[in-house]
Computed example of a mutant assay.
Amino acid sequence: MNLQEHYSQLYTKSSKAILEGNSKVDNQINDASDSRFGITLLIRPNDEVKAKIQLFLNELRAIDSKQYYYPNSDIHITVMSIISCYEGFTLAKIKTEEYIEIIQKSLLDVDKIKIELKGITASPSAIMIQGFPTDESMNNLRNTLRENFKKSTLQQSIDSRYAIATAHSTVVRFQEKLENPEKLIAVTEKFRDCNFGEFTVTKLELVYNDWYQRESKTISLADFYL
């Protein structure tokens, strides 16, 4: 996949929808009864990158404070959604140590992963930071995870919704009708090619998480150091 082309097409289509008043509101963000949980292998950008992301979010917040803005604690890049969030999933349904074992096995031959976060893309319901792995290390890891989990008998839903190929980070979700779509898109245009920084991945995290990866609802299952 050509990531730049993919992100650009998504931004063009989604920004048009937003400007035409066709953005989508996520009505479940503040639903206390939301019981969608899953397990995810993820990466967190370093503090320097997250500080630059917050500068962008501050500009968006200044024109529309009613949307859901990710705090630094929740900003992440998904390596693999191993069990996609679904209603009623709990850790009692799996043996966590078996998942950890497969991930450790999958990481044996992984080289250093470097990711550049540069530019903005969007969907009709969210705004994302574009992520670009600098080589094939992340794709190789994802393919190894796919192969090893599919050989196992463990519950998993890898690629059930779509085959993950990007390295984006969702940083805004629309939880209310947009107050001023034109101003919002003006800010995203300003940051469209902003370089948020490059970082080397030193740690991957396996977590039990809700749909939004909120720290308050996340349980850390294991850390894997590269």
Rank of each mutant, 00 (worst) to 15 (best):
K177M: 09
Y11K: 09
Y208D: 02
N148E: 12
T134H: 10
M138H: 01
K190C: 10
I83V: 12
K203C: 07
L184T: 04
K66T: 10
F37I: 04
S8I: 01
F89W: 05
E147C: 07
I185D: 08
R192H: 15
I29N: 00
I100Q: 05
A51Q: 08
I83P: 04
E116L: 15
S125R: 09
E5H: 15
R36Q: 10
D26V: 01
Y208N: 01
A51E: 11
N46E: 08
H168S: 07
K16P: 02
A32Y: 08
L206I: 04
L204E: 05
F89M: 06
F37V: 03
S15R: 13
V172R: 01
Y86D: 11
L204V: 04
I39G: 01
K112A: 14
R44C: 10
A122D: 10
D74I: 03
S35A: 11
L117A: 02
F196P: 01
D34T: 02
Q104H: 14
R61S: 13
N58W: 00
I185N: 09
A51V: 00
W211T: 06
K150I: 11
I82M: 03
D135W: 06
A222I: 06
I82Q: 05
E198R: 10
E48P: 00
F196W: 03
A167F: 08
N140W: 00
N143I: 09
A165T: 15
Y225I: 15
K93D: 08
L154A: 09
V207T: 13
A17L: 13
Y212A: 02
K151R: 15
Q9R: 14
V171Q: 09
G21H: 04
A186I: 00
N139M: 12
D223R: 01
M80E: 14
S23C: 02
S220N: 13
I53V: 14
N209L: 02
I120T: 03
S8L: 12
T12V: 10
S106R: 06
R44N: 04
E87H: 04
S81W: 09
S33V: 10
K203E: 14
